[in-house]
Simulated scan of single mutants.
Amino acid sequence: MTTNADDTRTPRRRAPAGAAVLREDVTEAIRSAVFGELAAVGYARMSIEGIARRAGVGKTAVYRRWRSKLHLVLDLVSAVAVQGLPAPDTGSLEGDLRLLYEVTARALRHPVAGQIIPDLQAEAARSPEIAEALQKALREGQQGAASGIVAAAAARGEVRGDLDEDLALDLISGPLYWHSVVVRAPKPPASYLPSLARATAAALRAL
């Protein structure tokens, strides 16, 4: 029988009446359990009960943090999407793009990208709610980094100041995502990312 390892107590200070103190170790255990459940059974068959059982906590501990499995999974996808994305400052558009691609390529080889995102994309085809939330989660991380690169390039005079930001984001993020997640091609050769950065920089200058 699992016990609710979540807590409403602290050893020295009392929380305000009615407030729940959410232990970080419990939160991390739940997040780890989600990866395990998704890999084992997929999104459609995953349940809050299964997550709680794998994490060694009660269902209440999960629901205190996320109101549904969709919100829990999207929270993790969002975290991985933005984790480690740099604010490049190499002094050149091509250099900034290459740094972004190096970090993004590592992120796309993460289990979230390799297993979980394709699974969620299949669910998104059946659920507008999942489709909208997944698009937002994946786009936000890349959009912040790409916008910074374009703004810095414009300030240096490498691209037009009125560059279409949505088109720029598609040019920057699309090829690597297609290669790694959609086609799921093997790890590219060492020359691929520098070549991609060079080609993307040329395309952005031409806009």
Rank of each mutant, 00 (worst) to 15 (best):
V182Y: 12
Q115L: 15
V159Q: 05
G144I: 09
D164G: 08
A124Q: 11
V182C: 10
V21Y: 11
G91P: 02
K187P: 06
L72C: 15
I117D: 07
Y101P: 13
A168Y: 01
Y192P: 01
L204Y: 03
L85K: 02
L74D: 01
A105I: 00
E24A: 14
S195H: 01
R64Y: 06
G161L: 08
L76W: 05
S191N: 08
G58F: 01
R13C: 12
R160M: 06
V112C: 13
S32N: 14
A44G: 11
A206Y: 01
T3C: 08
R31V: 15
G91F: 04
R9S: 15
R109W: 07
L167R: 15
R64I: 07
D75I: 05
A29C: 03
L204D: 05
I116A: 10
D7G: 12
A145K: 00
G144A: 12
L176W: 04
N4V: 09
A154S: 10
D170G: 15
K187T: 15
G174H: 04
G174Q: 10
A197C: 07
A206H: 07
A33E: 00
A137K: 06
R126V: 05
R126I: 07
M1R: 13
V80R: 06
A133W: 09
L163C: 01
T90Q: 08
G36F: 04
G84E: 09
A79M: 03
Y192M: 06
V57N: 04
R9A: 12
R53C: 07
R53H: 11
D25E: 15
P175N: 01
A19L: 12
Q83K: 13
R23P: 11
A122K: 14
Q115E: 10
T90V: 03
V103A: 15
P175T: 02
V80F: 03
R23M: 01
T2M: 09
K187S: 13
R31E: 14
V26A: 12
G18M: 08
Q142S: 14
L176N: 05
A137C: 05
D7H: 09
A185M: 10
A199D: 14
E49K: 13
R64K: 08
S191D: 15
L167S: 00
L76I: 15
I48T: 12
T3G: 15
P128T: 05
V82I: 13
P188A: 08
G84Q: 03
V41Y: 08
D96V: 00
K187G: 12
R9G: 09
R98V: 06
G84L: 07
A199I: 00
V57K: 05
E123L: 06
M1S: 14
A155C: 04
V159D: 03
R12H: 13
V159G: 01
